[in-house]
Design a protein around this nucleic acid. Structure first.
Length: 873
RNA sequence: GGGUUCUUAGCUCAGUUGGUUAGAGCGUCUGCUUGACGUGCAGAAGGUCAGAGGUUCGACUCCUCUAGAGCCCACCA
């Protein structure tokens, strides 16, 4: 207990060294590794695996902070908490990056071949794969890193293949020649969910098609004139009088000189454009359907990269689709067949990855039938076996599940799980199994890989590698994820869980907020409006970032974020730090004695103990309801307002007294309460709390606040009497401070206070003196009002503060008048209510009684204030 | 076009099943080297709860409509 240690505690909390220290401590002691333990209930979370080559975003910060808060909370509550981390191979995203990287070096993917390319992918994965998990660690997440998984791990890989084979053999997977969303950049099909629609300011071109054997033209409107090269018909509405005579006739398609029919179909809207539609079955979903209905030809005019192919006239071949568009339009203009051009805004589907408009494209793909899988998955949520938080996502989910289309699961890529299907070289027979056919030389394996999501949909169960583990840890408890992958991932995981495990994959799904910038725009690379989380951690500390983000992110609402908002968390961390500093500094001179922890209790102690219990109850309640943001606010207010502003301040009057036993008791108790408080804070601010917890006393190697248990609610410690007593003291102190403030009386000037009313205990007086900077307190039922004093009314007592020579009567009058005005307003309201017979007769008696009580109290106060005001005249 | 969420203090947001004198943080103003903290302490100002109807004894809260914002879904060329 030397002076030296005194100065060892810095004035401001500095997270830098602290965070690294405890992170390595936790990892070295494997504190967050979980093994099957039949004596404990498991609490399991699987991380939404980030893209292996990605970097940490603010979205990840929020998402993982929430998971960590849940996991730490449950771990402290005695659950066998297991948080499985990992990354996703992100087939298309990674392949795009590697392809681009190779291209920069002049290497073409096709030239080096599949095996060589995959080597590069693995190299890339190993090089960049660790980045995001390292970044995640800085946040202080309590993942079980020994369980880290990757969706291309050998075990996981084989599970994906097994799953494909099982579904194929069950008849749920089929191969079909279909129109799919084609991404010309990755040259692969993508699923409906990977198409993003954007408003595009484009044009509507009106093209004149000459009708055969006549001088007439039929004018069609199109947003994509280049597709006319593949037109095989022109459609009109059967009820359209304008075109009645043309139905059945032929058009001589300009440029390509092909004869195509004019036909009628209900689909055509008469009001749009000219009411006549050019039909390109190979490059438009609707046209494809119509083509089938009317037996039209189907001419594919594009190569996989969306350049024009040999099915178009020679001088149009090999053009990019946008160049082809220009050339077609020019040609029409030259021929005098361009009727007009209008500005037109419409929605165009873009490839999520490629960032270019998708091309509806006919190709052979693998599909997974969804009906059979979706039905039970919908039921699980509708029946409440799985809960969504916030609940309204259930509706969105149900809507999607009821309108679901088959899932295109094949991708024309190499990085991923290769489809376990072989075609016989001679007979074209299909073979599907986990192992290749024995006479492999006669077979050729399908070139495609599976959609990333058709591997990650197994995540909730296949991260566990043995039957025993699956039995113990599955179903997992809580899934925390962003709402934008509800269809990509959440829905499909539910399907997979029910199909392959016969049980739901998780009980609760917490949909996080979307983090936006202060203008409400989504964080994005191109806008450059996303702060780098690592910079924020460097500047504010991980705890501050975690706390701020939780504080700002209510369940179900988007969050407007900028890094300055982390002031909240940093200031809070500093506040806790200094509360600890105060107690520990006093522990230098005051002896701690555990035997006195429950001795010399006064109402302030009983009050804070009671407040702690109520806070604990509220936190438990909020956490159970998945209202983390609420839990955080409750803690904040307890720590700052109750513990620091009042309890610590009150403790001073006794800590600086002469009674050694009292001092000992007060400090021991305060430290114990402080330690309990740290436990409440720990799930949200793990580093800071761990640091102070170790400063409080020497701990054994391997001990940690994170496994020290969570306080348990004890109703017998709730003390309403003490809470009322404190309230009285607080009101008087606040009234005194208010007068000081309004009268501009500096704290350095001590004052006396006269309390006319019920008896004030010595104990209460002590606190009032200390907190109000009061010298003498006079208390009696029949006190005379001292001359030239400021006055007010608190809890039925009249308060007078003599201010001879200082008081400004005009200011005092205004102050009282303000109170009176406010009271009269309230009183008018309650009087009106009580004079309404309907209210008195219909409202519940306790409500009426409460109103009457209010009224009586206010009337009393009002008349007293009026007397005081009169006194000043 | 369908669905969904939202509109409360200058800003960002709380407000649980209808009954409060409508709250917090930031910002603003005033005072303060108060024996943990100026990343702090004390005090103050600031709101017709988007608008209009309705239900009710009583509406920020429930219902309808209107206006505005966000998100998701949808094949109008």
């Amino acid at each position: 207990m030397s002076e030296a240690k005194f100065v060892e505690i810095p004035k401001a909390y500095n997270p830098d060294s602290v965070e690294d220290k405890w992170r390595s401590y936790w990892e070295a002691h494997k504190l967050y590794h979980s093994e099957i333990d039949r004596n404990k209930k498991p609490y399991t979370i699987v991380i939404p695996p980030p893209n292996v080559t990605g970097i940490l975003t603010m979205g990840h910060i929020l998402n993982n902070t929430i998971q960590d808060a849940f996991v730490r909370y449950k771990r402290m509550k005695g659950y066998n908490a297991c948080w499985v981390p990992g990354t996703d191979h992100a087939s298309i995203a990674t392949e795009t990056k590697v392809t681009d990287f190779l291209k920069e070096q002049g290497i073409n993917k096709k030239d080096i071949g599949r095996d060589e390319f995959l080597k590069h992918c693995w190299e890339w994965t190993h090089k960049y794969g660790g980045i995001i998990t390292r970044q995640l660690r800085k946040l202080g997440v309590s993942c079980d890193w020994e369980r880290e998984r990757f969706t291309m791990d050998p075990h996981y890989y084989s599970k994906v293949i097994e799953t494909f084979v099982a579904l194929y053999k069950k008849g749920l997977i089929y191969r079909g020649f279909r129109m799919v969303n084609w991404c010309p950049v990755s040259k692969s099909a993508i699923s409906d969910e990977e198409v993003l629609f954007r408003q595009v300011n484009g044009k509507l071109w009106y093209l004149k098609y000459p009708v055969k054997e006549s001088n007439e033209f039929i004018i069609v409107a199109t947003t994509r004139p280049e597709t006319m090269l593949g037109d095989t018909g022109v459609a009109v509405n059967p009820n359209d009088e304008r075109y009645k005579d043309l139905i059945g006739k032929k058009v001589l398609l300009p440029v390509v000189n092909r004869e195509i029919p004019i036909f009628a179909d209900e689909y055509v809207e008469m009001a749009f454009g000219t009411g006549a539609v050019k039909i390109t079955p190979a490059h438009d979903v609707n046209d494809y359907e119509m083509g089938k209905r009317h037996n039209l030809g189907c001419i594919n005019i594009f190569n996989p990269d969306a350049s024009t192919n040999k099915n178009v006239p020679a001088d149009f071949q090999g053009l990019d689709r946008f160049d082809a568009r220009k050339k077609v339009v020019d040609m029409f203009e030259e021929l005098g067949l361009l009727h007009k051009v209008e500005d037109y805004t419409n929605k165009v589907g873009y490839s999520e990855r490629g960032g270019v408009p998708i091309e509806p494209y006919l190709s052979e793909q693998w599909f997974l039938k969804m009906d059979e899988l979706a039905a039970p998955a919908l039921k699980a949520v509708e029946e409440g076996r799985i809960h969504f938080h916030p609940d309204h996502w259930t509706k969105t989910y149900a809507h999607w599940m009821k309108n679901i289309n088959d899932w295109c699961i094949s991708r024309q890529l190499w990085w991923g799980h290769r489809i376990p299907v072989w075609y016989h070289k001679d007979t074209n027979e299909i073979y599907c199994d986990v192992n290749p056919p024995e006479d492999i030389e006669n077979w050729k394996q399908d070139e495609d890989v599976l959609d990333t999501w058709s591997s990650s949909w197994l995540w909730a169960h296949d991260v566990f590698t043995t039957k025993e583990e699956q039995q113990y840890y599955y179903p997992t408890d809580t899934l925390v994820t962003a709402p934008d992958i509800i269809f990509f991932w959440v829905a499909r995981m539910i399907m997979a869980g029910l199909e392959f495990m016969g049980d739901i994959p998780f009980k609760d799904v917490y949909f996080t907020s979307v983090i936006r910038d202060m203008q409400g725009r989504k964080m994005s690379k191109s806008l450059g409006n996303s702060p780098d989380p690592l910079d924020v951690i460097d500047e504010y500390g991980a705890d501050a970032l975690r706390f701020s983000v939780l504080y700002l992110a209510p369940l179900g609402q988007d969050v407007l974020f900028s890094s300055e908002k982390c002031d909240i968390g940093r200031n809070f961390a500093n506040k806790i730090w200094n509360a600890g500093r105060y107690l520990l500094m006093n522990a230098q001179s005051v002896e701690l004695n555990d035997e006195l922890k429950d001795k010399h209790l006064d109402f302030a102690d009983k009050w804070i103990i009671s407040r702690f219990q109520n806070t604990l109850r509220q936190i438990n309640d909020a956490m159970d309801k998945f209202e983390i943001n609420n839990a955080v606010k409750i803690i904040y207010s307890y720590v700052w307002n109750d513990f620091c502003d009042w309890y610590i301040e009150m403790s001073k009057s006794r800590l600086y007294s002469d009674n050694e036993n009292v001092k000992s008791a007060v400090l021991t108790r305060a430290l114990s309460l402080f330690e309990d408080m740290l436990r409440l804070v720990h799930p949200f601010m793990p580093y800071l709390t761990e640091e102070i917890w170790h400063l409080i006393k020497e701990r054994k190697e391997g001990q940690s606040i994170s496994i020290s248990g969570f306080p348990e609610f004890n109703i017998s410690l709730v003390d309403t009497g003490a809470e009322h007593e404190i309230q009285f003291v607080q009101e008087i102190v606040t009234a005194i401070r208010n007068i000081r403030g309004e009268m501009n009386i500096p704290p350095s000037r001590v004052i006396d206070v006269y309390i006319r009313g019920g008896q004030v205990t010595e104990n209460e007086k002590n606190y009032i003196r200390k907190l109000g900077r009061v010298e003498n307190i006079f208390n009696d039922k029949n006190l005379e009002k001292p001359k030239a004093s400021a006055s007010t009314v608190v809890s039925g007592s009249d308060i007078f503060i003599p201010l001879e020579g200082v008081i400004d009567l005009e200011v005092e009058r205004q102050r009282l008048q303000k109170d009176i005005d406010r009271l009269q307003g309230s009183l008018a309201g309650v009087s009106k209510k009580l004079s309404n017979e309907n209210f008195v007769n219909n409202a519940p008696p306790d409500v009426v009684a409460k109103e009457k009580q209010k009224k009586a109290g206010w009337e009393d106060k009002l008349s007293k204030l009026n007397v005081m005001l009169d006194d000043l005249r």
